Amino acid sequence: MPIYMDRHDVSELVTAEHVAQLHQEDLKIQHQFGCRALTYWFDNQRKTAFCLIEAPDKATIEKMHNKAHGQIPHSIIEVEANIVESFLGRIEDPQKAKDSTLNIINDPAFRTIMVIRLDYFSLIDQPDSLPIKSFLAQFKKSVSNLLTLHEGKLAKQQEPYFIISFTSVSRALQAALTIETLVTEVSRSSGLKKVPLKIGISTGVPVTDKNLIFEDAIKLAQRMCKVIPGEIIVSSEVKQLFTSENSTTLPEGGNIVALTQANEKFLTYLMDYADSAWQNSTFTVEDFSKHMGYSKAQLYRKLTDLTGTSPNAFIKEYRLQEALTLLNKQTSNISEVAFATGFSSPAYFSKCFQKRYGYSPSDYVHSKLANS
């Protein structure tokens, strides 16, 4: 039976005791609906509660809540138990809570999300896969030890990203600075030049209006990694929370970049549109500026200030990164990749790819096949 997580936005008057009572009401009647209320989280500061429930479908959860206490969730998403545990540390009530009658769990589901992007795919001037494999093996082992030290949890890995969950902004920043040094050391010991590293750090809750757990926080961190210059990029909320946790400001400068709320909003709007339009070979800067509501000159200034690239260069780089991802999957030929990523012809794609990476797409594919 599937597992779901729902979100309840509660009033300022609601306490941890109230939420515990509602959970108990669910437990009393869950069998009537073929459900199993596994656990819940409550965030008193943000006034949000999240329930983890095994149920036949979303509609049945709403019916159970309605009969038990009348508190219908604002949103529900389907989740995987192992992913929930990776991000939040548990999929059932804490042991100490089970020993109490009311079972009060004053545990917020709010997390700091770190995304690590390792662009070892771009090291195609070193096509031998053995150094890359050595690097990844050493990196994973070292990061695992590091996360234990900083109370982080590796929640998900999807090349070229590592997604990590922390309960503390400060610990996430400390871990990021250590990872920065770690990548240099592991690259050297693996016989590579330094593997390009980007770390994006954002914050959020598991259920919003999206379909995936922590989707908003993960997407923001990934996008910061993808287009913002710097090795460690943090959201405006991370900067604010760091100050509240440490009574000092975030040490910006060097390799740490903090976005403003205005820049985050622009980045989100920019990437939402780019995600929907980049595969269209007729997509132009004029289309970009018109959709964004800027003149071409305004878009140029805004984009170069934020990403360090012009609109034309941004579009081309976006497409080349997507093309590199497709080539690494080895499921499409070069012509298919060229058209799938919005290039007008395979010849033009090969020219751009060669200029960007120093290898032709065919040489890169042959190198991958020879070492797979």
Rank of each mutant, 00 (worst) to 15 (best):
C35K: 08
L327P: 07
L38Q: 13
A313V: 13
L327F: 09
I53K: 02
Y364N: 00
Y40G: 05
T284K: 07
A55M: 07
V115T: 05
G358T: 02
S350R: 12
K156P: 07
D43I: 11
P127K: 04
K316I: 14
D125R: 15
I3F: 13
C225P: 02
P2W: 00
S122T: 08
N211P: 07
Y269C: 11
K133P: 11
A313K: 13
M64W: 03
Y300S: 12
P56D: 12
E264R: 05
S100K: 05
G200Y: 05
L177Y: 00
G253I: 14
L197S: 00
E17R: 10
L270I: 11
V79H: 01
G253W: 13
Y357M: 03
V79G: 04
K47A: 03
R111H: 08
A338D: 11
S281G: 14
K194F: 04
L259T: 02
V186D: 11
N371R: 08
T304Q: 10
D119H: 13
H31F: 15
I61T: 00
S332K: 12
T60W: 05
S75R: 12
L320G: 14
E17H: 13
T167K: 03
L102R: 09
H65G: 12
D363F: 08
L136A: 08
V143I: 03
G70Y: 01
Y4P: 02
S310P: 04
S244N: 03
K355E: 04
A20F: 07
V84F: 07
E80N: 09
D209Q: 12
L220N: 02
Q71K: 09
H74Q: 12
A81H: 08
Y273R: 06
D43T: 06
